[in-house]
Design a protein around this nucleic acid. Structure first.
Lengths: 234, 234
DNA sequence: ACTGTTCCGTTCGGTAGCGCACATAGCATT
DNA sequence: AATGCTATGTGCGCTACCGAACGGAACAGT
């Protein structure tokens, strides 16, 4: 099983030139992440940069009153903790939403690669831009779109980061992610289930009709996806 | 007048080591910006990185239905167009909200400085982080706080980027920035005026009681400000 | 089989902000 | 003075969402 977890499964590591990859590879540490695990807390000095292969994490931003919102999520499309080379410290919390494997790189190695201006350096900068896009789109979506639409966006973006069409999240958790009441999710999810688009029970969500979700989602989903693909192609 | 516009007025350029500054200085081009001027459009290939000295710009993110929101603003505390070294293209629009002067740097020079890992390089990375913070906080604020609070936040953050206590913005413009109805601003601003905190008429806003605004604003203001100061100190 | 816990469904009153329509007031131009 | 434009004020019905409370249903452990 672990053999299957090649670092190449992560899209940032996937297309690295052979020389660079071989230089980095020995220093990559495979780790297993569990549901709800916190990779780092806001304000904490980052030690590692994480490259998920088959797990994904949400970046949470706390509000004063105890509520919080997801401002971005990261799967095998990116890296968790880009602040490590920006300033050293992130102001958000990184929480594992779907358990699995990830590779991590020591800060010193990240900085070394960074200083050599390799391929990884450029990919990380591009990826940073796509994170900014995600965050900005979240701001827009929070402002203009309904809970129903935001739920669809969340489901679709999550699916894109996972191999299967199943998610393991309670309505309570989704509510926290979107920054709404739990009851709001009950209602929105109920509609989707009645329409036959998803099927859920006790924290286990199965997406039955992907295109149906796409028909209901706001534009935010496509914007984030397209921009991210554009940046990764570069 | 123009003589007064030393590049050193911009906080990113202010503390550069002498050697680096003298290398950059000859290539800085002083420009004058006018109200409403668009520095770049979303998707456009960036040519310049702008360093405002006494003007400030808003970064706007468009939603599909024609509305838009400010996701961050930049004054003499930063640079407009950091995407130039991230990916080359921004997905937001940069609009001058308060006219004045700025210096700009050709892309080639930016990249050259970037590759030399000078002081500017590190400052720009740090500043990128503070932009991300601003954007994330906007997402949170859009989600949890009232129009009244958001207006206070906007006024305070704008004041911080300006030399005086006056702003030239109609209620209509502020509404676009915050992504709310014009009438919402009429109401919120009316309250502030009645409380004697501001005075306005036909697009001319004077802030009379700064600390009064600070008493009403949500935490978002302080978070953005503190984080930005922390990052600039580094 | 019993019990506690987690997850989901539903109801109900309250409110912030929306969309719309229209009124007024300051300023400019002629 | 007359006209027109732009900025601001106000009122009204409507909807999405909130906060709180409660009920039921699935599951886990003993």
């Amino acid at each position: 099983m672990i053999k299957m977890q090649s670092p190449r499964k992560n899209k940032l590591l996937k297309d690295l030139p052979v020389a660079e990859y071989e230089c980095i590879f020995p220093h990559l540490e495979l780790i297993q992440t569990s549901l709800g695990e916190v990779l780092f807390e806001p304000g904490e000095k980052l030690q590692y940069l994480y490259f998920p292969t088959n797990c994904f994490a949400s970046l949470f931003y706390d509000a004063e009153n105890g509520s919080s919102t997801e401002i971005a999520s990261v799967g095998n499309d990116g890296a968790v903790g880009v602040a490590i080379f920006l300033s050293g410290t992130a102001i958000y919390r990184a929480v594992v939403q779907s358990p699995g494997y990830a590779y991590r790189m020591q800060k010193s190695l990240v900085m070394q690669q960074f200083n050599q201006h390799g391929s990884l350096f450029h990919k990380l900068l591009n990826y940073t831009q796509s994170l900014i896009t995600y965050t900005a789109q979240t701001a827009v979506c929070n402002r203009f779109h309904t809970v129903d639409q935001r739920l669809c966006r969340f489901l679709l973006l999550s699916l894109d980061r996972l191999p299967s069409n199943e998610l393991f999240l309670t309505q309570e958790l989704i509510a926290n992610i979107l920054g709404v009441r739990r009851e709001g999710i009950t209602e929105a999810a109920g509609k989707l289930q009645q329409a036959g688009l998803i099927q859920y029970s006790r924290g286990h969500i199965t997406v039955l009709d992907r295109s149906g979700l796409e028909a209901r989602v706001c534009e935010c989903y496509q914007v984030v996806k397209t921009e991210s693909e554009r940046l990764m192609a570069a």
